[in-house]
Design a protein around this nucleic acid. Sequence first.
DNA 1: ATTTTAATTCTACATTTGTAGAGTAACATA
DNA 2: TATGTTACTCTACAAATGTAGAATTAAAAT
Lengths: 124, 124
Amino acid sequence: MSLTKAEEQLMEYIWQKEKVFMKELIECFPDPKPATTTVATLLKRMQDKGFVAYTLYGNSREYYPLVEKKDYFSKQMSGMIKNFFNDSVAQFGSFFARDTSMSTQELEELRNIIDEEIKRKQNG
Amino acid sequence: MSLTKAEEQLMEYIWQKEKVFMKELIECFPDPKPATTTVATLLKRMQDKGFVAYTLYGNSREYYPLVEKKDYFSKQMSGMIKNFFNDSVAQFGSFFARDTSMSTQELEELRNIIDEEIKRKQNG
DNA sequence: ATTTTAATTCTACATTTGTAGAGTAACATA
DNA sequence: TATGTTACTCTACAAATGTAGAATTAAAAT
């Protein structure tokens, strides 16, 4: 199962904070901030889906993610790559380099990252 | 505005075919195929959203995309990058290289693509 | 102990999305 | 031209989503 838009937004704040009480979460939102009940509903649904859990402190809960951002994101990416690029990561990469408006500098930075990654994989 | 999951699936077929009649679209789906009315509804909504248009041939319509796949996809990516990577393409690239399960071969392929792209940009 | 405050649950409701039946219009053909 | 065929529109409806009021519970403050 996957997060909806509203849940995803909230999840992003949770990932940022690592651990967080509802009150703090609401403060993360720009005005107009959602009602506490709205956030509570989303948190509930996210628990049901297995994305967050909490530790009880007194009467309030400190929420934390059960799914890592990178795993969630990877899954999202896989989905897109599957749908749009015939399940070929390379085809996607090609698209990404060509058709995303990256500056030369950004491209070079990316190439360096990839280079390092290749080396890292070759060594161990 | 953006496409829903079902619309996106349909759009993918339209992009593949470039021009297509509803009948052919339905054939694209795996069994169990959706009812014609279902596809018709989706096509209608997609027209309203400005994603497809059609040419009339007799009493039937040949649909074609108004939005290019790469543009649509770019926008999707931008959204994700904005949400998950603080609007930094490089940060995304870094994530992509490190945390997506790409083989060394795929990474090398990607590096070559990026290299070419850098050269292309430097020349003209 | 009583009041205040804050978090959680229950319930609700409008909107969006996925899906399709029934009816209608137009075309093909006997 | 009557009849079947196909595509489209209108309408409908269940499920998912975004949002939040009312009631409840529990902690905190006085």
